[in-house]
Write a protein that binds this DNA or RNA. Structure first.
Lengths: 263, 263
DNA sequence: AAGTGGTCTAGACCACTTT
DNA sequence: AAGTGGTCTAGACCACTTC
């Protein structure tokens, strides 16, 4: 410990060549890794790397953005924590996709009280284009009266109707969406949205209440009028916190429950 | 870029002096920062640093554990992500406490449909010690028939009864818990558990259903029999994934909702 | 053997808070 | 000025996957 080697060439503050220079005192300061993160999100959003695909390695991204691998790593770490990408040691980093069981559990919290979860069976009741109701267009950040796609469906578990859903989507983003398209598609609806319409749902906000079954719900869910149902109002978002789906669901919770982890 | 400075003294693989040596091929391998994390959790659990208090700085912990500051940083980063500690730039890292609004929202997801959340008013109905029901002792990892503390209470928001709860706690951990103790305590119940009984709730798992109000719920929540109520069955855990509370709550959701973020 | 992400170190400077 | 966490770099080796 007596040696006092000459200090290495001072690296210190990064030069930030290639990315917005972080001048001290700059009002719009943001850390380099956040800027890198934004650039990666832009590439995800633009479709440069599609769901399920491999994105460039950390070394390659570091070279592209002219930053250190550690900075790229921190950016990807956060994207991984937000479930936008999935890291696999030895293989690389992949764009998250709804064609995976894990992801589907994140967006459907309904579990059977005992036994394992099965794939639900979809019965589309109605698909139509319409002027969006005021509340829907407000939640979707659209102009009043803008066109939306409306979907009504029932989901069966083991032959029993459990979920009744109404869904509203921006008409501009889901032009070719028909009942046939929905019927022929196997797997989760968000998988269809991702594969056929290039819209990736990355997070959602839900309001849950207990309500009584009305005549319509009673008929479709095969329960008596007045039976308690779980009402789940969802707004789902794609990249950039842009709302792209409004959904109102009713769950029969006599044999199922909504599972939630508080942490 | 032409200079090729002589390489710095090879540091390379860490010697790991002071902590379990990570011999390659060891069957019980775990990264250094995970071991550090466990040691920090032990200190939290033992009460060496109490809720709300400052823990030692990264530099100090690095010296204590004989690892680099970066390794301590990664350990604390994860603890911060898990809400066990809170980092404050310039000040230090603090042990998370239930005496904070933020934490309370994490454990009570009920929000008014419009307007701001107010502090609820507690009305304790009953507190007693009893032999734990089979399902309760099972969920709490206790032996059948072990002693538990039972609490029944109603919570009022703006003078209206909204929540009816039954709570079961291990008798051994909550010896002096009485109705007076609960009545005189202002603030969230988990704050009392933390301050008076040294038990810190760090996460919980909930099963949510819609049920019909029975006679008892009807009387206490001032709603008609049969009205749909949100049923929330919770198991709460302290350090080390140890279950220490079972709670069954009924929420009136005509003016409130259970808020949940899917991400 | 080569490439990927995962861990660990060492050192510099920045932003923020307190003394 | 001193101490804290926050950012950034550079380089090493490890664990895992594929060729």
């Amino acid at each position: 410990m007596t040696q006092t080697v000459l200090p290495p060439a001072p690296t210190g503050a990064p030069s930030n060549s290639g990315v917005t220079s972080n001048v001290s005192g700059s009002p719009t300061f943001s850390p380099l890794y956040q800027q890198i993160k934004s650039l990666i999100v832009q590439s995800l959003q633009s479709g440069e790397w599609k769901p399920g695909e491999l994105i460039p390695s950390e070394v390659e991204l570091a070279y592209r953005f002219k930053v250190s691998q550690g900075t790229v790593r921190k950016a990807i770490d956060e994207l991984s924590a937000e479930n936008l990408v999935i890291r696999r040691q030895g293989k690389g980093t992949f764009v998250a996709t709804h064609h995976e069981a894990k992801v589907q559990f994140r967006f459907l919290r309904l579990m059977p009280d005992n036994g394992d979860a099965h794939q639900p069976e979809n019965h589309i009741i109605e698909v139509k284009r319409m002027r969006g109701p005021a509340e829907v267009t407000r939640l979707l950040d659209m102009k009043a009266g803008d066109s939306v796609v409306y979907i009504k469906r029932v989901q069966f578990f083991d032959g029993t109707p459990i979920i009744l859903e109404e869904i509203w989507l921006p008409g501009s983003l889901f032009k070719g969406l028909t009942v046939e398209r929905l019927d022929e598609y196997k797997g989760p609806m968000y998988g269809l949205f991702e594969a056929e319409f290039g819209t990736q749902m990355i997070h959602a906000s839900e309001k849950v209440r207990a309500v009584a079954a009305d005549e319509a719900a009673s008929a479709l869910l095969k329960v008596a009028v007045g039976v308690p149902l779980l009402s789940v109002d969802r707004v789902a978002f794609t990249y950039g916190e842009k709302p792209v789906e409004v959904r109102r669901a009713l769950y029969v919770t006599s044999q199922h429950h909504y599972q939630n982890e508080l942490s």
